[in-house]
Design a protein around this nucleic acid. Sequence first.
RNA 1: GCGGGCAUGGUGGAAUUGGCAGACACGUAAGAUUUAGGAUCUUAUAUCGCAGAUGUGCAGGUUCAAGCCCUGUUGCCCGCACCA
Length: 803
Amino acid sequence: MLYDYTSIEKKWQKVWDEKQPFAAKQDFSLPKYYALVEFPYPSGQGLHVGHPRPYTALDIVSRKKRMQGYNVLFPMGWDAFGLPTENYAIKNKIHPRIVTERNVARFKSQLKSLGLSFDWSREINTTDPDYYKWTQWIFLQLFKAGLAYKKEMAVNFCTSCKVVLANEEVVNGSCERCGAPVIRKVKSQWMLKITEYAEKLIDGLNGLDFIERVKTQQINWIGKSTGAEIDFATTAGDKLRVYTTRCDTLFGATYMVIAPEHAMIEKWKPLLQNFDEIRAYQEAASRKSDFERTELVKEKTGVMLSGVRAINPVTGKEIPIFISDYVLAGYGTGAIMAVPAHDERDWEFAKKFGLPIIEVVAGGEDVEKAAYTDTATGKLVHSGFLDGLEVAEAKKKMIEYLEEKGIGQARVNFKLRDWVFSRQRYWGEPIPLVNCENCGWVAIPEEELPLRLPEVDSYEPTETGESPLSLMTDWVNCSCPKCGGRAKRETDTMPQWAGSSWYFLRYCDPHNDKALASPEALKYWLPVDWYNGGMEHTTLHLLYSRFWHKFLYDQGVVPTPEPYQKRTSHGMILGENGEKMSKSRGNVVNPDDIVRDYGADTMRLYEMFIGDFEQSAPWNTQSIKGCKRFLERFMNLLDIVKGEGVTPELERPMHKMIKKVTQDIDSMRFNTAIAAMMAMLNTVYDHGSLTKDELDTFAKVLSPFAPHIAEEVHERIGGKGLVSIAPWPVYDEAKTVDATVELPVQVNGKVRGVVSVAKDADKDAVLAAVHADEKIQAARAGSAVVKEIVVPGKIVNLVVKPQ
RNA sequence: GCGGGCAUGGUGGAAUUGGCAGACACGUAAGAUUUAGGAUCUUAUAUCGCAGAUGUGCAGGUUCAAGCCCUGUUGCCCGCACCA
């Protein structure tokens, strides 16, 4: 039987296109299942073989769920705003819309060639005005709720993209996308208060079925810490507020450090005798990027303020104040109390500047040799009313004391920073705000959404780093919606993360022009039952979209507090040389070639068979043959199919296989599910024939993995309808276990033989069989049995001793 | 430095979670078929050996029994990184 995969695949893809068997049904009374994969950024390169891995996996899940009677939503779309398209447009003088259209067409045809069961009637595109209308609408709700604000701030600025980057987009001091150096620049930026949701974003993880590493990464990123704020009086007659997690060590605070950007410097300027030196240090610090500042870990630097000193509130002693860039302006209060005896950084600084080190927690070595940072053991010393207490108790007591005196209180802090939301770029959603001379920032009326991107002559950012939209004076100048006075439009656009922060909501009701989706559709489909995507999105997209969702929940727009019930992450597919697949390494495999040379079904099967779904695995074109052979041999079953009904010899293997595949899909062990089908195929060939019914069942089980060949075989044996939506085979538990089991028998832990016993044989029956076995008798000859261990259905072990 | 993960044949990887290590494939070898090559089929394939022994990065431990649990250690990968 010839396996002409090309014509088979074309044929069935056409049938699916015509009959739309994979479109989600509008019937909200059916049990639902929402499976989601991250929608791709349609780049100019097209897909590489890494993309289809998660798509195929969730396609298998979706197809099986459909066959099990669920109303399945498995959608696809395009996250199409973004820099690469814009850069390509600038370089080739083509409108980014055209570039996007072209790339989308390419991606779509590639995805279609893989036989993925997406509901294409719900396709969305973030650059479509009907879509970004609602992205803008959500932004306006955030603005109205006070969660969007404009702030002058030092931002990360990519020297090549000429664009402001979020902290998350800066990797080792370089731009995440282009790799060019990132410098700090002061700019006025739109910010979103994600920090307001820090606590909720941590708490919400409870009860979600996210893989552990995603949870821990998000928790670490949000970085909750519990401590206290303490006010130190200064000789300038004012107060300096610090944040600390070790208020118990207050008696050991021998100096203070403030960040170079700290506002008090300007206030104290008249009192500072060494202001020039301080100013020079500030300037040096501001020239460094965040990365450079943290890179110089080895040597601490700083300048002492002469003219202002602080007073330790519990010892009453005057202590010096330094500025140093090891204290970060953006965290806590931008100022710390330094306790060199119990903090490594403070210790290092104190050693360098010859500052006193006072031990206040006993239990470590000499504090002149190293800081003692252990909080689990050790008691307070040299600490007045705290003496003799454990660290935990001391913290409590100190907070009580501070609150009583009114000089401090308990305080929780987060590492998470607010989200820098503006980009000085063309190819993004316009921010729907105007700046009125009288009213300040004003939202444009919702009826005027979408605020469309105007046509411009050049997409290049201006030399000052402003968006090209700023040159469109006709567009920029407008009237204030509130007072009618003169106003200017915001010319910054939104970052790429905006459109992807809510796209899963739009899929529920993608053509709605009254709302981002109808409440009924949202209530039915949410939450997403299974969302798979890359680990690299854990602290960006995944966190941002949880934030927006939680906000929309608080606004009553969405019915669930969390968007995704289950989150998994696929491993990368590496090049044949075991390195990451990339154009520069020259090890990229194009799926089009694989589909042409082996077929889409083989490609799908191989991508799932390659190894553990969560683990990365190297591509090996040689190994694909095994999957192709399997499908050819599956097709050849048509030559040995005979009669109908059940073949006694195949009944148990068949039920076992159905069980294994059913369970393995749910636990995303696709590789072993395929191995089980391969083993079944071998069993059938060993037997020599199978019935029509059995072949049809086999085709059903195979169909989520290799849907085209399954349809073809189903049709050729006279099956009715599409196998893709046929009922999923059900296994009979009783028929998955054998009547007799082969029990390995060990003597002193070494296998010496095998006995065949009934599956529910009791211990005595098993031992009788064991002792009757000749091999076992030989193995234990001349020894006395000390102990007999029988694990029913598993193993027998005889412990013997020489006589 | 902190956090998470991984280590099994020539290769990709299995192992019901403490119960026959190497399922299923790739590759390789021999044979069959073929004018030849390719494809296909059969058999073998952890290592060393004659019936036996040894084997899951390394060193210990717990157990009747350890790839799996515990202690220590090495190497690799991925996050975060002066967060007070």
